[in-house]
Computed example of a mutant assay.
Amino acid sequence: MHIAKMEGESIFDEDVDRRSGNLLRAWREHRGMTQEQLASAVNTTGSVISLLEAGDRKLSPKWLYRLAPALDTTPGYLLDHHPEDLPDDIIETWSSIPQAQRKHAREVLQTFRHRTGTED
């Protein structure tokens, strides 16, 4: 479970995220954004972001694809990976790759996964 770091900082409540089935709140806080800032970035309201974070409104594929770029992540990471559990350098490197080049970058990385042998 992730706990508040310092007094006055928000607490990441893993139980809330388990109920909502997503990690939207964790990613928003990781990026240092308020609900209103994220809402503005995706042309909605803070109330809608609150509903999405709480699971009171479904985080549909449509929402995932709107929110992920605003949070410099991927739709799948919003559902499956807490930002504090991932190495920062991987997240930041991926975020720095322009959207148009990410498919190619993913293909290049997959070649390493399928590579055989013992060469370093």
Rank of each mutant, 00 (worst) to 15 (best):
P75Y: 02
E92Q: 15
D17F: 06
T73P: 01
W27G: 06
E36M: 09
D120V: 12
I11G: 02
A70F: 10
G21V: 03
G117V: 11
I91G: 02
N43K: 13
L51C: 03
P83H: 10
L79S: 07
T116F: 02
G76K: 06
E119R: 14
N22H: 06
A100G: 00
R66M: 11
E119F: 06
A4P: 01
R113A: 15
G55Q: 01
F12L: 08
H114G: 14
L23T: 00
G32C: 10
D17K: 10
G32Y: 05
A100V: 13
K62Y: 05
R57A: 09
V42T: 13
P83R: 14
P87L: 05
L79C: 03
I49P: 02
L38M: 10
F112T: 07
L86H: 01
T74E: 06
A41R: 03
Y65D: 08
T73H: 11
L64Q: 06
R113V: 15
Y77W: 11
I91F: 02
L23F: 14
D85G: 06
T45N: 13
K103I: 05
A41N: 11
L71F: 12
D89Y: 07
R57T: 11
Q99W: 04
T34L: 07
G55L: 01
H2L: 03
G46A: 14
I97A: 09
K58H: 10
D89V: 11
L24D: 04
R19N: 03
P69H: 10
L38Q: 04
D80M: 02
L78R: 02
